[in-house]
C-alpha cells in the first residue's frame, strides 16, 4: 500500500463522514461548516490526482465564495441557528432507499466496467508534465482548444450575476 493510497482512504473517510453530516445535521450552520470540510477534502483529492490548479480553484471559488454565499443565505432567511428538528422530512426513508438503490446500480456498473484498472499517476509531478507544470498545460488548453466554451462560461457568469441582482433587489 503506497502513501498515496493511505492518504486517499483517509481523505475519503473524511469526505463520506462530513458529507453524511451535511445531509443529516439538525443545525443549518453546522451543515454549512461540514460542507467546508467536504470541499477542502475534495480539493485534497485533486492534489492526489496531480490537478493542482483545479484544487486551488476549488478552494478559492467554493470555500472562498460559495460557502460565504450559503452563510449569507442562512442569515438572510433567518434559519434557526440552534438545533431544528424540522429540517428533514418525515418520509426520509424513501430518499435513503432511492440513494441506496442508485448507489447499488452505480457500484455494479463501475466494478463491471473498470474493475482493477489503474490510474497512471505521475510518479514525480516535475517529470510528468513535459511542457512545464500542470497549470501551464491547463491554461494553454483553456485559451486555445476550449476558448469558445470559456467565453460562453464567462457570458453565463455575467448573466447569472445580472439575474441574481434583478431577483434579489427590493423594488
Amino acid at each position: 500500500m503506497v502513501a498515496q493510497n493511505i492518504f486517499f482512504f483517509a481523505i475519503a473517510a473524511v469526505i463520506v463522514y462530513s458529507g453524511l453530516r451535511v445531509v443529516t445535521s439538525a443545525n443549518v450552520v453546522h451543515a454549512a461548516l461540514h460542507l467546508v470540510v467536504v470541499l477542502a477534502s475534495v480539493a485534497a483529492q485533486y492534489v492526489l490526482l496531480a490537478a493542482e490548479f483545479v484544487a486551488a480553484t476549488q478552494v478559492l471559488v467554493y470555500i472562498g465564495a460559495i460557502i460565504v454565499l450559503f452563510l449569507f443565505g442562512i442569515m438572510l432567511t433567518r434559519a434557526k441557528l440552534g438545533r431544528d428538528q424540522d429540517l428533514t422530512h418525515k418520509h426520509w426513508m424513501g430518499g435513503a432507499a432511492t440513494a441506496l438503490a442508485l448507489f447499488a446500480v452505480m457500484v455494479y456498473a463501475l466494478i463491471d466496467e473498470f474493475g482493477w484498472t489503474r490510474t497512471p499517476l505521475p510518479a514525480d509531478p516535475r517529470i510528468a508534465s513535459v511542457n512545464g507544470s500542470n497549470t501551464a498545460t491547463v491554461s494553454d488548453a483553456v485559451f486555445s482548444t476550449y476558448l469558445v466554451p470559456f467565453e460562453v462560461v464567462s457570458v453565463l457568469l455575467l448573466a447569472a450575476l445580472v439575474g441574481a441582482i434583478v431577483l434579489a433587489r427590493k423594488d
Binding site: 429540517l87 432511492t98 440513494a99
Partner: peptide, 11 residues
Amino acid sequence: CIGVYGVIARR
C-alpha cells in the same frame, strides 16, 4: 448518492 439523499430528504 449522499447528495441525492439530501435533495430528497431535506425540507
